[in-house]
């Protein structure tokens, strides 16, 4: 079942403002039975002040459609027409503490019904249909087939890479690669038939190069020998809390340095290793800083692209390996929050 927020559940099980509003003077209707959701939004607007004094809804749809409709009425009651026009579907989703990506279309339906009702009140033209369409292809970014098709057609996209650049689809976990490839190949085929692109340009299913595997940068030791660093001169921003001699626990945990180096010398070596590896991380848009060293534990903070990166574990593994080799004793590297 869907992972609905408590607020979505609350607004579904106890909907506010459900039912017909008999004295409505602005009504917006969107959706249809065939697409599986429909919403009738009824507003009572004060013609003098343009304030929405009351709003009610009737919805045909799933739990999140009903919750979104109810949330919408709560959001707009008391607002002026001009204020209500600024409301976006994201506002509805935020009000409900978020919606599953597959269900974002429910919030879009709310926004559309509002636009239709406002248009009915002011006599404007109704906005073009922005209702989402087609199967949800990329779950990470919530991109559906309709949006991808529009991007491919408008921009004459013929590679998977370009589709990802334009729509973000497939840019994260890439598990939608196969349906994405199929969609691109199908649409390109149609575009060739329509004369929009040349046959040799069209994407052929299965012809995409293998996804480039990002080199696990943490393991890569630069080919060129690192510039010799003046020894015992840790760079300024790095602060090392020395293992306190008075902390017997930490000392007990720490195996005796096999290298016979003092704790301070070890700390200097460690900071040097991390300094040497930093350019590699920076190339990838991240950074790593030494925070502390306690016995066999080296604490670092990951920033930028490194933090939250799925490769963080292997990055840390790379650092640990290098330090272990240098110090000659097992070291664990742990990420910590920046103080």
């Amino acid at each position: 079942m869907w992972d609905y927020s408590d607020k979505v559940k609350d607004y579904f099980f106890n909907p506010r403002n459900a039912g017909a509003l008999t004295d409505a003077n602005a009504v917006g209707e969107v959706g249809s039975l065939s697409c599986g959701d429909a919403l009738k939004l009824m507003l009572k607007v004060n013609p003098e002040t343009d304030v929405i004094e009351d709003a009610k809804f009737q919805t045909f749809g799933c739990g999140s459609a009903i919750a979104s409709s109810s949330a919408l009425t709560e959001l707009i009651i008391g607002k002026t027409i001009a204020q209500a026009k600024l409301l976006t579907n994201q506002d509805i989703a935020d009000f409900l503490d978020g919606l599953p990506p597959e269900k974002m279309h429910c919030s879009v339906m709310g926004q559309e019904a509002l636009h239709a009702a406002v248009a009915a009140y002011t006599g404007e033209e109704v906005d073009e249909d922005e209702h989402e369409e087609g199967a949800l292809i990329c779950k990470c970014f919530g991109v559906d087939a309709g949006m991808i098709e529009r991007a491919i057609r408008t921009n004459k996209l013929t590679t998977l890479e370009m589709v990802t650049f334009y729509t973000k689809a497939g840019g994260s976990c890439a598990s939608c690669r196969e349906p994405l490839e199929e969609l691109l190949a199908d649409i390109n085929k149609e575009m060739v038939a329509e004369g929009a692109i040349r046959p040799e340009e069209a994407y052929v299913f299965g012809s995409a190069p293998k996804p480039k595997r990002k080199k696990a940068q943490g393991f890569v030791i630069p080919d060129a020998a690192p510039a010799p660093m003046p020894p015992a001169q840790p760079s300024a921003p790095i602060q090392i809390a020395m293992p306190a001699a008075a902390a017997p626990v930490a000392v007990a945990e720490a195996p005796q340095p096999a290298s016979g180096l003092s704790a301070a010398k070890e700390a200097i070596l460690v900071s040097k290793i991390i300094e040497e590896m930093r350019p590699t991380f920076r190339r990838d848009g991240g950074d790593v800083e030494l925070v502390d060293m306690e016995g066999s534990l080296v604490l670092v903070s990951l920033v930028g692209a490194c933090s939250g990166c799925q490769l963080a574990a292997s990055t840390l593994g790379g650092i640990a390996q290098k330090i272990t080799e240098t110090l000659g004793r097992p070291i664990r590297v742990m990420p910590v929050a920046r103080s």
Partner: peptide, 14 residues
């Protein structure tokens, strides 16, 4: 007729 299945299931689940 005239209603959507998921809404029914959520209420049934309740």
């Amino acid at each position: 007729e005239y209603i959507e299945g998921e809404a029914i299931l959520l209420k049934l689940n309740q």
